[in-house]
Nucleic acid binder design. Structure first.
Lengths: 135, 135
DNA sequence: CTTCCTGCAAAATGTTTGCATATCC
DNA sequence: GGATATGCAAACATTTTGCAGGAAG
């Protein structure tokens, strides 16, 4: 369980109920969420607030975008590095930790014409989950 | 230079000017494009046609989506496997071929609770390009 | 001549902006 | 009290759908 208030204070953000609540949601839910998900679970909070809060959090690297090819942007905490497998049929999402990107970054940069630095990456796998295969 | 007409015939699609033109665009432009890009270069063609054509092409695996974190979906030909580095400042996109995902797929699937098969993956790197670093 | 592609209009969805009010520090 | 977050309305952007006419096989 993360300490929402401390996270906010550490980033010199004002401590407000909406921000606390969104951070706690991420911590409890443990899955990438989009704005709609969050707004619903925040029964009452405006979508606009959610958009703005996520933007703020993203700039401060508290959360990050994930592309799960579901049409809208998903967010998750940046607390531990991991990636996802997504079922292209039912949308089920599973995490995995194994990541080989850092190992290839150097050789990619060596070959690159225009880039000298890489700060982030996305790596998502897509397949069909066991439940959907059976149908 | 790809043969647009053959590609369409091979997939049992009707050979229409819009489809030919879009395929040729991808072949010449050699960069991921979004619907807006394509519609502009197709001076006159309706955006809706572009959306529908891309959907058709995607189902047949002629093109695929790429997420470059630019707000709209980008597409590119599936003709050769590669990934991208994107400048988070100016949006510049560069390709690279090196890919280590197939090597880790097996061990990821072995550990996975719900997945037994992976069909696709996304792998994009984000950084700042040399031109933007200098500013 | 039948199938299905295209364009236009409209709707649905997702995201951003402006401004007045409320809340935090 | 001053700075900034929130809610509401409205604008804007992106994508989907319905339907009639037109082109391809």
């Amino acid at each position: 369980m993360l300490n929402a208030i401390n996270i906010l204070k550490d980033h010199k953000l004002k401590v407000t109920p909406a921000r606390i609540h969104i951070l706690e949601l991420f911590s409890e839910h443990c899955k990438p969420m989009n704005v709609e998900d969050i707004a619903k679970k925040l029964h009452g909070a405006d979508v606009v607030t959610v958009y703005r809060t996520l933007q703020t959090f993203e700039k401060l690297k508290i959360v990050q975008q994930v592309d799960l090819r579901k049409g809208s942007v998903f967010y998750e905490l940046t607390d531990h590095h991991h990636h996802h497998i997504v079922c292209t049929d039912c949308g089920k999402v599973e995490e995995f930790e194994l990541c080989v990107v850092p190992e290839i970054e150097k050789s990619i940069l060596k070959k690159s014409k225009s880039f000298k630095h890489i700060s982030e990456h996305s790596l998502e796998l897509f397949g069909v989950c066991k439940a959907c295969v059976k149908q």
